[in-house]
Amino acid sequence: MDIPKSALRYVDGDALKQLAQGLTFDLPQCEQVLDSALIGLNTQNGLPDRMLAWIRAGGVASGPGPVEPRGRIIVDITQTINVDGQQGYFAAVLCKNDEQEAAPVVFFSMHSPTLDVPMRVEVPLRALMLGNPPLAGSYTLYVHALISSDGATYVYYGITKRGWSIRFNEHTRAAVTQRSKRLLARKLDDLIDARAAELAGRKDDRAKLAGIVSSVCGTGMSREAALAAEERMVDKYSLASKHPYGLNMIPGGLAGIRHIRHFLRKR
């Protein structure tokens, strides 16, 4: 039986829908599984209740959020599919002391049946909890990481007002069907093509796609804040002219807008 939204103790179903739309996950089931996991976690260390109190006090504006001192809390929601194609979900709450980040996070773990590679989406737990301002109309900062069989990880940062996963689906279609000239689409197409050749038993010396990790880095952002964050992250990690594994062809944020305007004036 589905749990009514009003009965959810911690999870904001609207926020989950906004940040996970476009995924193959059954979101109503995910609401229930995540909420149950947080109820269990709260009986152990009270972290979910402390996070709700922090959000009510203003969230990030009120200071650093609560964390588990023993390590980073990760709620890993895994999608399983049986032989009849029926989907099931279960959650594991992990406490990792080897993570660089301390803020609690939710993993949505999947497996591509076509390419036989793992896929994971990472969303800050605070963004999925009750009490935050509505996300509609705000911007999301995200990063896509393409993991290749030779150990390289290619990264791309972007912002969007729509579902970020919808934007990634557009990149994927551009790679597979439209042969886009954009660097992200070209690299994704090359990695997918090499992986498909491997699965078909054809010899191919190219690096193959070994996995995809997409992370939501910031939510509920104004346009100005999102542009500033994108410009900073692209310059630091993913501008192709500066970083060998970067997939952003132009600077992010306002610097990217200026770059495009300069290019158009010269045409």
Rank of each mutant, 00 (worst) to 15 (best):
L16N: 01
F168V: 09
V67T: 08
P113A: 05
I147E: 12
M249S: 15
R72T: 00
E198N: 08
Q86N: 13
S241H: 01
A174R: 13
K181T: 15
V33L: 05
L8H: 07
I192A: 04
R195G: 00
E224C: 07
G131P: 00
I159F: 05
A229T: 07
L128H: 00
M249E: 13
G158P: 00
P124L: 01
S222P: 03
V176N: 09
M110G: 09
T78N: 05
K203P: 07
R265M: 11
A92N: 13
D190Y: 12
D193T: 15
A194L: 01
I3W: 11
G22F: 00
V216F: 00
D12T: 05
I257M: 14
A136D: 12
K236H: 13
I55S: 00
R206S: 06
V121S: 09
R126S: 11
A210M: 04
A136N: 10
A225S: 12
G131D: 01
A103F: 07
I260F: 10
Y245G: 07
P66S: 01
I250D: 08
Q100P: 06
M119W: 09
A145Q: 13
M51G: 00
P104W: 03
A196D: 09
L227W: 02
I55C: 01
Q178Y: 12
S138W: 03
Q29H: 14
L19Y: 03
T43L: 12
G58R: 06
L52E: 00
K181E: 13
A255V: 04
R70Y: 08
M221R: 07
D205I: 07
R223C: 09
D76Y: 02
L239S: 03
V213W: 09
S148N: 06
R265P: 00
K5W: 15
G40C: 07
V213D: 10
A194Q: 06
G252F: 01
R72E: 05
L188E: 03
L16H: 05
K208Q: 11
R126H: 09
I166F: 15
S6Y: 12
S62R: 09
L146F: 08
F25V: 05
A200H: 08
G59N: 03
R261Q: 13
G163K: 05
Y139S: 04
P118V: 03
G201Q: 01
L254Q: 15
S138D: 06
G256Q: 02
I192W: 02
K208R: 14
D26P: 05
A37V: 03
D98I: 08
A91C: 00
G246Q: 03
I81Q: 11
Y154V: 04
A127C: 04
L209P: 03
R126P: 02
G71D: 03
V121G: 08
L141D: 03
D49Q: 11
V117I: 10
R126W: 07
G71I: 04
Y142S: 02
D26S: 10
S165D: 09
M119D: 07
G40E: 11
E31Q: 12
N97R: 11
D49F: 06
S109A: 13
G163E: 01
H111V: 15
A228M: 07
D14S: 14
K203E: 14
Y157M: 04
L247C: 05
L23Y: 11
R202T: 11
L27I: 06
D14N: 12
V121D: 06
N82F: 08
G137Y: 08
S149N: 02
M119K: 13
G65F: 03
F90S: 15
M129D: 01
Q178K: 12
A37I: 01
P244E: 04
T140M: 00
